[in-house]
């Protein structure tokens, strides 16, 4: 809980932010229960390529796929895009860290290395967010597959990165006032409540989809992929 001396309003916002986190945890728990309420299946055929792989190895490989840009043609050939993906998600981690550390360990955020890292990641994520908004608005393919939720999510996240930059700057006293922190934490609270109902909750499903696909393709001898 808050370990600094915020104004009563900022304090209330910080409490709200923690409560929102609690709500998100509950909703996510329900989400996982919902996902697991569907029928589980298993492959009934005998395993293939059992001399080199199995369902477990396939699952590990699939789960680690995100860290192996060389494993998929899409990330191998689109390495620049992969890097934007990596930086964007590191920016999310920085933003979440900023939100929670600002309420419990504000002095830590003033450490030069920490503040430089957070600012750097937030700035990169903000820039990538702008690029992604443009990409979604301008590329016919992206326009076709985008829903209001897609636009809203990327716009809000980009705004959140921007507010995060301002908040970090205010914490290291480059900008005056609590307004940035209040705005940032309110937006964070909103995200915590909104995310479970939007596409942003994809990270919750990530381990499930990757493990399930990996188990199937591992059992069938496809994963890990054999390269020529």
């Amino acid at each position: 809980m808050p370990a600094h001396e915020p104004s009563p309003f900022l304090h209330a916002v910080e409490i709200t932010h923690w409560l929102a986190l609690g709500v998100m945890v509950v909703v996510y728990t329900l989400r996982i229960r919902w996902l697991l309420s569907f029928r589980a299946t298993r492959d009934r055929q005998r395993p293939s390529n059992s001399h080199r792989t199995d369902a477990r190895r396939g699952a590990y490989y699939s789960l680690a796929n995100v860290l192996m840009p060389w494993a998929m043609e899409s990330t191998r050939r689109g390495f620049a895009f992969y890097m934007t993906f990596a930086l964007f998600h590191l920016g999310v981690v920085a933003g979440i860290s900023l939100a929670f550390l600002s309420t419990v360990a504000r002095p830590f955020l003033r450490h030069p290395v920490v503040s430089a890292t957070i600012l750097g990641l937030l700035f990169a994520a903000f820039a990538i967010g702008l690029y992604r908004i443009g990409r979604r608005l301008l590329r016919p393919v992206m326009k076709l597959i985008s829903t209001p939720d897609d636009y809203f999510s990327i716009v809000m996240l980009t705004s959140w990165f921007f507010l995060g930059i301002l908040t970090e700057l205010s914490i290291i006293s480059r900008l005056a006032g609590e307004g940035y922190a209040v705005g940032y934490l309110l937006l964070t609270s909103f995200f915590l409540l909104y995310v479970p109902f939007s596409k942003i909750s994809h990270y919750l499903y990530y381990p499930f989809t990757r493990i399930w696909l990996g188990r199937t393709l591992g059992h069938r001898g496809t994963y890990p992929l054999v390269k020529g």
Binding site: F38, A40, T41, S74, R77, K199, Y205, Y206, T209, W212
Partner: peptide, 19 residues
């Protein structure tokens, strides 16, 4: 099934599958 529902809810419309 679980894996089908996973595939239905996890797409972020990133367009990586495109090419």
């Amino acid at each position: 099934t679980r894996s089908v529902v996973g595939s239905l809810v996890a797409c972020v419309h990133c367009g990586m599958c495109n090419e």
